[in-house]
């Protein structure tokens, strides 16, 4: 059985102005790479990886360096009747925290299909964690958590209590303010290969979710 459906990939942040709950950029790597550029590149890599799936339609919320409000990003899923919505982000904190984590919106707060969201999030999070761990055992499995995230509002994604076809989660791929992660994803000799492996893992998770 082949994968069938529509997936919306949402590269977090973008542009130079904060807009409707979406900041232009958050994390910055030690070598100066901005999170907004990494999210766009990874979304495009996943889109390319999914091009081999004839029955999977891929839509990006942005294809250039522009910002969209959180509601506008989720509305792309609503307007396209998407089956999956994946918001891609990178983390950053104190230069030493590590790990891969995914988030879904809590059930008691504008989310009608939290269990389905968690299944999708677990597929993506585990796939990305395994891909990174194969290259760097220093990463950490932070699992799937609940958080009140603006981009995951069911009312913006088009889900209702009676009809909730869109599964949604937000992925924090790694903490890019850690020098080892910066080398792994941006500056090291294997960085292009590692990025492709992570994109492939996300593609596999999406295909599994749509099969």
């Amino acid at each position: 059985m082949s994968a069938t459906g529509t997936v919306v990939l949402d590269p977090g942040h973008g542009g130079s102005v904060n807009l409707g709950g979406s900041d232009a950029n958050h994390a910055v790597s030690p070598s100066g790479v901005l999170e907004k550029n990494m999210t766009l590149e990874f979304a495009q890599l996943v889109q390319t990886a999914l091009s081999s799936e004839a029955d999977v339609q891929v839509i990006l919320t942005r294809t250039g360096d522009v910002n969209l409000s959180l509601a506008a990003r989720a509305n792309v899923a609503r307007d396209s009747g998407a089956d999956l919505f994946l918001s891609i982000h990178f983390n950053g904190f104190n230069g030493s925290a590590r790990g891969v984590e995914a988030f879904v919106r809590p059930a008691n707060d504008d989310n009608f299909n939290v269990d389905e969201d968690k299944e999708f999030a677990a597929l993506v999070q585990k796939g990305v964690f395994d891909a990174i761990q194969a290259r760097d055992p220093g990463t950490k499995d932070r699992g799937v958590k609940e958080m009140k995230l603006g981009v995951l509002r069911d009312s913006s994604l088009g889900n209702t209590a009676a009809n909730h076809p869109c599964r949604a989660c937000l992925l924090e791929i790694e903490f890019i303010d850690v020098p080892a992660v910066d080398a792994l994803l941006n500056t090291g000799p294997d960085a292009p290969a590692v990025r492709a492996e992570i994109a492939s893992a996300i593609k596999d998770a999406i295909v599994a979710a749509l099969t």
């Binding site: 709950g21 918001s87 983390n91 950053g92 984590e101 995230l149 603006g150 924090e172």
Partner: peptide, 18 residues
């Protein structure tokens, strides 16, 4: 700090809570 505690991502939550 976001209104009604609705965050954009975990980066924002980590920094606001700290």
């Amino acid at each position: 700090a976001p209104p009604q505690g609705e965050y954009e991502d975990n980066f924002q939550k980590l920094h606001v809570e700290t």
